[in-house]
Amino acid sequence: MVPRANALGLLRKDDQILLEEQKGVHSKGIGYFYRPIGGTIELGERSYETLIREYKEELDVEIAIKRYIHCLENIYEINGRIGHEITQIYEVEFKDELLYKKDTFQVVEGSRITQAKWISLGDIESLILYPNGLQELIKQIM
């Protein structure tokens, strides 16, 4: 395996952040875990372009990039296999202000359907949040 480059967009509403809720095997065990919306950077694609594409593909919404935040490098192990991600983190916003009134969003990625929901910034400490290091970064910047 080789490192995977991806991009994630932090989308904030007051004291909440939009996170996708997933359930399954992860580097800390089995169960629920959370991550911002985003995905793998395609060859020839800028990381901010990845976010615009991923939000459109997964949530069917349009976003604007507010600012670049940070790069996180995440090396982890799941079921004895090493994974390595290099993640570009951005702050993003909805282009349509009415979307901030929605409580949840259906996240469609191929045949997999999950849900994204607003999580209080105060509650993220008790969640399993990926990539590793994101909780600390959010505490510093939000």
Rank of each mutant, 00 (worst) to 15 (best):
E91C: 13
A5K: 11
E85F: 10
G31N: 10
I141K: 02
K101S: 15
N132I: 14
G44M: 03
Q135H: 14
L8I: 14
L51I: 01
I52H: 00
E136D: 14
T104H: 06
Q88R: 10
G31W: 11
T50A: 04
R81D: 03
Q88M: 04
E58V: 00
I37S: 07
H84P: 10
I17H: 10
Y32F: 09
Q88F: 12
P36W: 07
K101L: 14
I89V: 14
E57P: 00
K95R: 12
C71G: 00
R81Y: 10
Y68K: 07
E73G: 04
I113F: 11
I86N: 06
L8Q: 08
E62I: 00
L121C: 12
Q16M: 10
S27W: 11
L51Y: 03
G38Q: 05
I119N: 03
L59W: 02
I69W: 04
Y130D: 04
K56V: 00
S27I: 07
M142Y: 14
I69D: 05
E20A: 09
G133Q: 15
D96K: 13
I86E: 09
Y32V: 10
K23W: 07
E21D: 06
I119C: 03
A116P: 01
G39A: 03
D60N: 09
G24T: 02
I37Y: 09
H26F: 13
L18E: 06
L59Q: 02
L18F: 04
L98M: 12
E85S: 14
N132R: 13
L99T: 08
Y76E: 12
V2E: 15
G38H: 06
G122N: 14
S126D: 15
Q88D: 09
L43W: 01
R4F: 05
Y130V: 10
R46H: 04
S120C: 08
R67N: 12
L8N: 06
Q140H: 07
L43A: 08
S120N: 14
A7I: 08
N74W: 15
F33C: 05
R53L: 00
I86M: 05
T50P: 00
Q106H: 02
A7D: 08
I63Q: 08
T87S: 15
G110W: 02
I65W: 08
K139N: 12
K23N: 09
Y100T: 09
L10T: 11
V107D: 09
I75F: 06
I69F: 04
Q135F: 10
E21Y: 04
E58A: 00
Y100K: 06
G133A: 15
Y68A: 04
E20D: 03
P3R: 02
I75E: 15
K66S: 12
A116E: 04
G80T: 09
Y130L: 14
I30V: 14
N79E: 06
A7K: 07
G80P: 06
T50N: 02
E45K: 02
Q88G: 01
Y55S: 01
I75P: 09
L72G: 06
G83A: 08
M142L: 12
D96A: 11
Q106D: 09
F33Q: 05
E93N: 11
E45Q: 12
L127Q: 13
F33S: 05
K102C: 01
K56P: 00
P131A: 14
Y55C: 01
R112T: 13
I78V: 15
I63A: 10
I75M: 11
L72D: 05
E20W: 00
Q115L: 11
E125M: 13
W118P: 09
I113R: 15
E45C: 03
E42F: 03
Q16L: 07
